[in-house]
């Protein structure tokens, strides 16, 4: 029988200890803020979560991949870690603070390792291995938390986009979008899609894009406005742009921006008047019902 390599010994020492003292450590962890504050219903829940983390860490130690955040052991607890970090974030903790709470989990197993049998060399190696394993766990938690944050930001960005571009029905077969704030490409896309869908939904023959609340109109914004008008026209609806403030009109002229064949009006009220005029003209044009 050949000698077991030192690292292999250390991994099995750590794995064995994490399993042997699982109950004890899980009980200690349950009183630490990371577990206590997250699992508020019963203490058993916190203990159970601690056991799961310890079992996962034991498996990672056994696999010898203590510095690998992609080790299969971590996959088992990723969802739980995400839930824990989300809960801590909601309590107002920064990612740094959460990281420190994860780091604090290291103390209990470290003490047990210190007391473990075996020679000094073995204990030192086991302690080092545990530090490394804990460091990897911290990275896994940070990574999970960041991913969770990214998803939240993306969701909120999407909600903001939808909220910032309401389409209102102004009159029978007349819809309007009051645009407020900067128009970037992503938002213009949402505006266009929402407006066109509203045209179908309300069977609108006319749409008003009111840009009173848009601070600046550069060539890109002008292009987006023209695209929206062109798409509405292809669908059979007239689109009028209203609310071009005097300062914006001047800037647009100075920049050489031309809205081409697009009908414009100074105010939303003027655009509404135009729309109603056109509707009554169309109504006159229709032959009486038989």
């Amino acid at each position: 029988m050949t000698d077991v390599p030192p690292v292999g010994t250390a991994t099995s020492v750590v794995a064995r200890l994490l399993r042997e003292k699982k109950e004890h450590i899980a009980q200690l962890w349950a009183d630490q803020p990371l577990f206590q504050a997250v699992f508020t219903v019963t203490r058993d829940e916190a203990v159970e979560a601690g056991r799961a983390v310890l079992e996962a860490l034991a498996q990672v130690a056994e696999s010898g991949r203590v510095d690998d955040i992609a080790a299969p052991g971590f996959a088992m607890i990723r969802q739980q870690l995400a839930a824990m970090s989300t809960s801590r974030t909601r309590s107002g903790l920064s990612i740094g603070q959460i990281d420190r709470e994860v780091g604090a989990l290291g103390a209990a197993p470290a003490e047990f390792l210190e007391d473990a049998s075996g020679d000094t060399d073995e204990r030192v190696r086991a302690r080092l291995l545990w530090s490394e394993l804990l460091a990897t766990l911290r990275v896994v938690v940070i990574e999970t938390a960041l991913q969770e944050n990214r998803e939240i930001v993306e969701r909120q960005r999407q909600q903001l986009l939808e909220m910032a571009t309401p389409v209102v029905k102004l009159w029978d077969r007349l819809v309007a979008v009051p645009l407020i704030g900067m128009l970037d490409s992503a938002r213009s896309q949402v505006v266009m899609e929402n407006l066109l869908e509203a045209i179908v939904e309300h069977n609108a023959t006319m749409a008003i894009l009111d840009i009173t609340g848009v601070p600046t109109v550069d060539s890109l914004v002008a292009q987006h406005l023209m695209k929206t008008v062109a798409a509405a026209r292809l669908m059979g609806a007239d689109c009028v742009i209203s609310g071009i403030r005097p300062a914006i009109a001047q800037t647009m002229v100075q920049l050489g921006l031309d809205l081409g064949p697009v009908t414009t009006r100074a105010t939303l009220a003027d655009a509404l008047e135009l729309a109603l005029e056109r509707q009554s003209e169309q109504a006159k044009g229709i032959a009486p019902r038989h």
Binding site: M192, E193, L196, E197, I199, V200, K227, A230, A231, A232, R233, L234, M235, G236
Partner: peptide, 19 residues
């Protein structure tokens, strides 16, 4: 021309075909 869908209209405009 009647009844063009929104997705088709957007695509045609991006394509550069406002007809």
């Amino acid at each position: 021309l009647v009844g063009m869908r929104p997705s088709v209209a957007i695509t045609l405009v991006e394509l550069g075909l406002a007809l």
